[in-house]
């Protein structure tokens, strides 16, 4: 990245509405939320934005709304605020992320838009079948989170667009769980897996998803899980087949944290653990 000497640093601008924020966008401007990743890109990686636009003072980006069918999480909610979210799997996931101090600043939207292959919120939201709302100069659009990530640090967002909200469907008789391997609590995930199970009124599996992080250039949904489990009684499910499917779906790299082979095997192990935990949660849920 080219470092351009400049006499003036960009001032953090604070729009109060989405309309104001979109109007401030220009060449070289960047959206600022918690800033915990972005600051390090400025401080350590030579990123020199022309303008910084702080999205955390836009009220609608900080709201949690629950209707009958879904919960909508504003993209500028902090991880600390998500610890009290009405979605237990999301709250559990957040408590395993970064540090207490960073969770005060870091946001849901920042975690997704930074698009680290290891982003912890991605698998759990993919497993829950989340969709995202995006606002831009041409209006708003709503798309599945599956497909949002296009590569390490890259998403479908154009520079002028803002991720505004994450919509999580909340069907009856659904549970989910996220599990990860990390050296310490502060460390990023070496491998992460999330699973969701949804039952029908006869306590048979109606839907199931498994999603992985840190095993491919983007967080990914494992194909075929719902088909493999659909219609089976949830008690005594065998998840060995799903673990194998997860191993086959991933495309891990070897880096200083873990080898590709280790990551692939752990993708299978964590898939089994996440599904088992989700099934355990179902046991505490009254069934028809």
């Amino acid at each position: 990245m080219t470092i351009i000497a400049r006499s003036t640093e960009p001032v953090l601008q604070r729009p109060a509405t989405l309309t104001e924020a979109l109007a401030l966008s220009g060449p070289g401007s960047v959206w600022w939320a918690g800033g915990t990743d972005l600051w390090l890109m400025i401080d350590r990686k030579g990123l020199r934005p022309e303008a910084l636009i702080d999205l955390t003072h836009i009220a609608e980006l900080r709201a949690i709304q629950t209707t009958g069918a879904e919960t909508t999480l504003g993209a500028a909610l902090t991880l600390a605020e998500l610890e009290a979210s009405p979605l237990p799997a999301v709250a559990d996931t957040v408590r395993s992320m970064c540090t207490v101090q960073t969770r005060t600043l870091a946001t849901l939207g920042g975690n997704l838009c930074h698009a680290a292959p290891s982003a912890d919120l991605a698998p759990v939201l993919l497993a829950l079948g989340a969709e995202v709302s995006i606002a831009g100069p041409a209006g708003t659009r709503r798309i599945p989170l599956d497909g949002f990530f296009t590569g390490p640090g890259r998403t479908v967002l154009s520079a002028e667009e803002i991720l505004t909200a994450v919509h999580v469907p909340t069907p009856q008789r659904q549970t989910a769980a996220y599990t990860r391997i990390a050296r310490t609590v502060v460390d990023i995930a070496l491998v992460g897996a999330a699973a969701s199970l949804t039952l029908d009124e006869e306590c048979h599996v109606l839907d199931a998803r498994v999603a992985l992080c840190a095993v491919a250039p983007v967080p990914l949904l494992v194909p075929g899980i719902a088909e493999a489990l659909k219609g089976r009684a949830y008690d005594g499910l065998d998840f060995a087949g799903c673990a194998k499917m997860a191993e086959e779906a991933c495309a891990p790299i070897t880096d200083l944290r873990a080898s590709a082979d280790y990551r692939r095997r752990m993708a299978g192990v964590l898939t089994r653990r996440a599904l088992t935990t989700a099934a355990d949660h179902l046991r505490r849920m009254p069934c028809a």
Partner: peptide, 29 residues
């Protein structure tokens, strides 16, 4: 550490802990 890993620069913002090395002063307005 200057990168939000060690916690030694922690302050409270509206009662919540924050590593102040990861935060712009402008954010504290």
């Amino acid at each position: 550490c200057s990168e939000g890993e060690c916690g030694s620069c922690t302050v409270l913002i509206d009662g919540r802990p924050v590593t102040s090395c990861l935060m712009l002063a402008a954010q504290a307005e």
